[in-house]
């Protein structure tokens, strides 16, 4: 067992404990609601960062998989044939399959062209959802609610159980993503990001690696989608619209790409900002736009990255100061010693 894994497990347990404890300390339902949205969008942003930050694949179409997860799960539950865990696994598996097909075409393209083709596929999936009214309900979404029959003694109709289940799933997914990013596979991806030619030269099958992370990231995004579908009891074509992908990118940028959990910081920031700005004004576009401009032009990086860099710089400064101070502080001593 890696030492890192133990630490990750401990961190995950602590995080889960915190997430479970919070609604007990603040029992208002609004906090639970807020956190469930945070889980859903957080998973999308985190998984997108596996592509953007880890592998250097800037996908403009990640929300497509968020949506397929939500739709597949919702449709399976509405069929009434399977229990929740089976529907969830099937939704994730189905999404992985779609991502495998789409990814096999997309990952062959480089840089901006990769971005464009992922966007094209997302718009394609969106138009399928809107057009296939018989299956998806078209623009009106999956109607009639998604049933939540009890399973394994868990009744998800109880808001607290629903929340706790979502929290567990969320933490498990984050942990899985952490393991992937820390694995040799993860380091290969970093190499591909930094120097694909070198990776290729070293015998790495770059295309297969990219496809692998593409499918994994899509699966994780689909978990986010199904959490949201479970919570709002429906799935809507807006999940697959390009604005949803844009928002995920936005969360990553707001939080930062350097830290593993940076996208979560971004998700939290955007959700909080959105929550309060919408309460106070209908001109949230103006406010949000201004905030983004200030962050991008002022900090020139995500907030978590900014803090990270600032801490790094301070440590470096302190180290430098220590190094500089050392002779100054210790120099008189021998002198004193000599005088004594």
């Amino acid at each position: 067992m890696r030492a890192g894994l133990v630490r990750d497990l401990a961190a995950a347990l602590a995080g889960l404990g915190l997430l479970i404890a919070l609604p007990m300390l603040f029992p208002q339902p609004a906090l639970r609601d807020f956190l469930i949205y945070f889980f859903a969008y957080g998973l999308m942003a985190m998984s997108l960062n596996l592509l953007v930050g880890l592998t250097g694949l800037v996908s403009f179409g990640h929300a497509a998989y968020f949506a397929t997860g939500a739709y597949a799960f919702g449709l399976l539950m509405q069929s009434g044939l399977v229990p929740i865990p089976v529907a969830a696994l099937a939704a994730v598996g189905g999404t992985a399959l779609i991502a495998l097909v789409v990814g096999a075409i997309c990952v062959r393209l480089k840089e901006i062209y990769f971005s464009f083709i992922t966007l094209a596929f997302q718009m394609f999936i969106h138009s399928i959802i809107v057009t296939w009214v018989g299956l998806t309900g078209g623009d009106q979404g999956l109607r009639g609610g998604i049933p939540r029959p009890p399973f394994l003694g868990l009744d998800l109709n109880d808001a607290r159980v629903l929340y706790a289940t979502c929290a567990v799933v969320f933490v498990l997914c984050i942990l899985a993503m952490r393991q992937v990013s820390q694995s040799p596979f993860g380091y290969t991806l970093r190499m591909i990001r930094d120097n694909p030619a070198r990776a290729n030269f070293l015998g790495v099958d770059v295309t297969a690696m990219k496809l692998g992370i593409f499918v994994f990231a899509a699966s994780m995004a689909s978990v986010g989608g199904l959490i949201l579908a479970l919570f709002v009891s429906g799935a809507y074509p807006e999940f697959a619209f390009w604005t949803t992908s844009g928002e995920a990118i936005f969360m990553i940028m707001l939080g930062g790409m350097k830290l593993f959990l940076g996208p979560l910081v971004g998700t939290l920031l955007l959700q909080t900002l959105n929550h309060f700005v919408t309460i106070y004004t209908e001109h949230h576009g103006l406010v949000l736009g201004t905030v983004i401009l200030v962050i991008v032009l002022g900090l020139r990086r995500g907030l978590a990255d900014f803090l990270f860099d600032a801490i790094q710089a301070r440590r470096a400064r302190r180290a430098a100061a220590l190094a500089a101070a050392a002779p100054a502080a210790f120099a008189p001593a021998p002198l004193d010693g000599r005088t004594v």
Partner: peptide, 13 residues
């Protein structure tokens, strides 16, 4: 992505 973000902000505004 930075350019994208700046443009997105401008569209909103």
């Amino acid at each position: 992505l930075m350019q994208l973000l700046v443009c997105y902000a401008m569209i909103l505004i």
